[in-house]
Design a protein around this nucleic acid. Sequence first.
RNA 1: GCGAGAGUGGCGGAAUUGGCAGACGCGCCAGACUUAGGAUCUGGUCCCGCAAGGGGUGGGGGUUCGAGUCCCCCCUUUCGCACCA
Length: 832
Amino acid sequence: MSFDHKAIEEKWQKAWLDRTDLVAVPRADQPKYYVLEMYPYPSGRLHMGHVRNYSIGDALARHKYMRGFNVLHPMGWDAYGLPAENAAIKHGIHPRQWTVDNMAYMKRQFLRLGFTYDWTKELATCDPEYYRWNQWLFLKMLERGLAYRKRSRVNWCPSCQTVLANEQVVDGCCWRHEGTPVEQKELEQWFFRTTAYADELLEGMDQLGNWPERVLAMQRNWIGKSIGAQIQFRVVGLEDSITIFTTRLDTIYGATAVVLSPEHPLIEKLLQGMAGGANILARIRQLQGRRPVPAAVQAEKEGIFLGRFATNPYNGEQVPIWVANFVLMEYGAGAVMSVPAHDQRDFEFSQKYRLPIKVVIQNPQHDLNARRMETAYTEYGVLVNSGTYSGLSSEDALRKMAADATQKGFGKTEITYRLKDWGISRQRYWGTPIPVIYCAKCGTVPVPYEQLPVLLPENVQITGLGHSPLREAAQFLHTTCPRCNGPAERETDTMDTFVDSSWYFFRYPNPRYAESPVDSAAVKYWFPIDQYIGGIEHAILHLIYSRFFTKVIRDLGLTETDEPAARLFTQGMVLKDGAAMSKSKGNLVDPDDMIEKYGADTTRMYVLFAAPPEKDLEWNDEGIGGIYKFLARVYRFASRHISELKGVPPAPIGSAEISAEDRKVLRKLHQTIRRITFDFEGRWHFNTDIAALMELVNQLYASEEQISKPVVRETLETMVKLLSPFAPYLSQELWTQLGHSEDLLRVAWPSYDPVLAKEEELEVVVQINGRLRSKIRVREDLTQDELKEVALADPRIAHIVSEQEILKTIIVPNKLVNIVISEQRKPAPTRI
RNA sequence: GCGAGAGUGGCGGAAUUGGCAGACGCGCCAGACUUAGGAUCUGGUCCCGCAAGGGGUGGGGGUUCGAGUCCCCCCUUUCGCACCA
């Protein structure tokens, strides 16, 4: 009987349609397991990266079912987003239609792949019953000052025709459009106050020991906490002072200038009434224009002297005030002190403009000479030329100088973050309307909760022309003020779609819950997510926003959860010819084609086999055939024996009269159980688990003629269980053919017998001077002396050792004997 | 520049604590079965050598009875951050 994967998969797809046994319900008597894979954007069809992500999650979910866990394994759709709108512009199809069609198609793909999702938990973020809760959460955040509106310089992607958050700018370009430099625009925007949780986001990482270090490092870096001090320099001849931020207060005696960002608000005032001031201002504006925005490339440092001076509050020295392109307004105080001797940037700047260099930290290796320095000395050290602080270490000086600044009132200790508040306004149609109304009389008025959801209107002309299409939707735009009933306008920007994905995992436990975004009781049972699985590309974007939302939702009193996911796993990318698969590169491998040709089992299993899950996977069109061949081998072996196994009991474990060949197969079987079981505990190197199953099958083929029926039954049944997380269709089919009726998910995961798994006779390696010389087969648990004796009796060893003096013998019981003799004289090399 | 990771046959990869380097698969070679084989089964496949033997995990050094694994230096490469004061 040949392996008809199509017939088998179609049969079980039908049987598994609308299955009710996967509906997750809280149960007090069972340990729970919430396994979640990042939901997809419904772009049209699944790609291999999806198949990989979801095959990892499904293997885990199936294993947890078999281990007796109450499993929550949901799936949904990140259904708002720009591609739907682009499709509308290009093909004239409505974004909703496009999205709905795609979800339907991709759901069929999911069903075809045989994943164990509880589809009763399905959610789509473009559904009013979902996005109303985005609006609800927004209003709560508004109440708490966690959402606010301000005019600011924002990142603008000319391709997307919308604003981007800082997190969505990669190398100065849009995260969706690699070649499109982001522009800066001044706009009124809504923000979420992520900075309010900066410290908790940082400290919370202590709880994330089971997140990849790589992700934590990226988040730490992104939050960018730095502890320093703010110091005020009085402007000579004016009442104003300039505040600078520094982490190296210990070097302040070496300051030779104060440098402002070109956007610094004080500049105009400083130039007022100065001769040539207008000219200088014009040059500064020019400098701004020339600055690469945002600073993607390190540009040549350029500066302009303002003609004014400021006083260093520590030593009373007057230093020139400059404006330079390398000082960022967005960070710290928008102004710095320039210490060329101890900061590389300041050093370069001073070289170019011939500013003096003053050494105030001494290098213990050799004395620094300001005139001969070629780079800045940035290490901590001992202070010199620093008044009363001279002689202190940098660490002591930092503390003392900050304390003195506070006491004397010209500065204080200050903490700054790289993390910025999250700009969430998007000038696009296909997203959640921001539930705010602008009234000429009452100002900005939140939409009352009872009027939620603010529905996204369906009949809107989508043009992609740079302002929200909702501006043109008169029905939507014009409304009445909830306070005064006067005429008013709605906010027409929509929310960043990352808002949707920041809390969807809280919705899964009860996605139809109508009282609040989260069903607190259900969440209390299921949370935290025991295992979250997704791509590394979300290390900062989605995963930092999610952590922020988790804390906000907690502080709203809806949950007690501090962190969303106890464990995070980031799988590697699927590559073809060394590059990520993409339409533009033309190197796509379509999962549908693979499923059509080899079946879902093979496709799933191959993505698990080709590389360990955390590493990138290089797709190989030939390789997948090897998995198909393996499954066909399993099927063929089973087919040859199933009919004769009727009524045959599984092998009685430990039975004395089983043959040596039986024992060999059982040993391999139990070693395989041990290996795969161990691996599911967290290592997840499914590639080696599948290799172990292949070894078992190879052993079965080799021993086929000599093993007894009970052992065949035992081995087949157990093997099918071990195989089922990776190849569920074939496994369920064979399980049924073996005479069972229950679903494999409800069958207990096999346990191994350590006695059976143990090798009876061991092969011990014999080395001489660390080099392999022979192998001996011995009984287990020989004493060290016995082992040594057997090793020395080995003819090959005896031959080499014969007349040498044995200096030492190292014995690792059951493993190895290493005999150390004096190094043999090498025969003189024959030269030609 | 800073931070994290990686470098093993023709290819993907294995080697859980320092203890047989190359499991498993692809590819390739040979044989069997066959009208046929891009099916299936069996055997072989790190390099040099007929063999005995020798060499071998990016390069160099070190620790150790013993190093792919630990330490130091260097090279290559992937990813993240990048004028963050």
